[in-house]
Simulated scan of single mutants.
Amino acid sequence: MAQVTLKVGGRRYELACRDGEEPHLELLGTMVDAKAHQAARALGNANEPRQLLLAALLLADELSELRAGAPDPERDSTARALQTLAQRIEALAERLENGGVAS
């Protein structure tokens, strides 16, 4: 059994996990900590349980949107960029096939 120390909302938590799962658990802890800080900014100086509740609700909201298929702006912009690039490559290939010079 491995041990991981997570820092969430300014507090340290010692957790046990299976060997090899430490990096994943640390990543999850970082995500929860980010939401805890977001919750703290939104709530002001609320107590820790309330702050962690809001952090959990923020994460649950994100998960709910992902499960419902809500658009991901970052993924959508990447898809648009790839589509534009593909169109440019096709246009260049067509120009080369027709004996034109690519610029």
Rank of each mutant, 00 (worst) to 15 (best):
G69K: 04
E97D: 13
A56P: 11
S77G: 01
Q83W: 03
L15D: 04
A93C: 07
E90K: 11
A39Q: 08
D72F: 05
L28F: 01
L85D: 06
L92S: 12
Q38V: 00
A36R: 07
A34L: 08
V8E: 07
H24N: 05
G69A: 08
A91K: 10
V32D: 02
Y13F: 15
Q3A: 03
A40L: 07
E65H: 13
P49I: 03
E26C: 12
D72E: 14
E74D: 05
A16T: 12
A2M: 08
K35F: 06
G29R: 06
A36G: 02
E90L: 09
S64P: 02
A39C: 06
N45T: 12
R11D: 07
T30P: 00
Q3C: 05
A79R: 15
L27K: 11
E97I: 05
V32W: 03
A55P: 14
A68F: 09
T5C: 02
E48A: 09
G10R: 00
R12H: 04
A93R: 09
Q51I: 14
C17H: 09
L66I: 06
A39F: 02
L54C: 08
L52N: 12
K35P: 03
A91F: 03
D72G: 01
A36E: 01
S103H: 08
R50T: 06
E94I: 08
G69Q: 06
Q3H: 06
E26M: 15
T5G: 00
K7C: 06
R95E: 15
I89F: 11
G44F: 02
A56R: 01
D76G: 00
P49T: 01
R12D: 14
E65K: 13
N45H: 08
G10P: 07
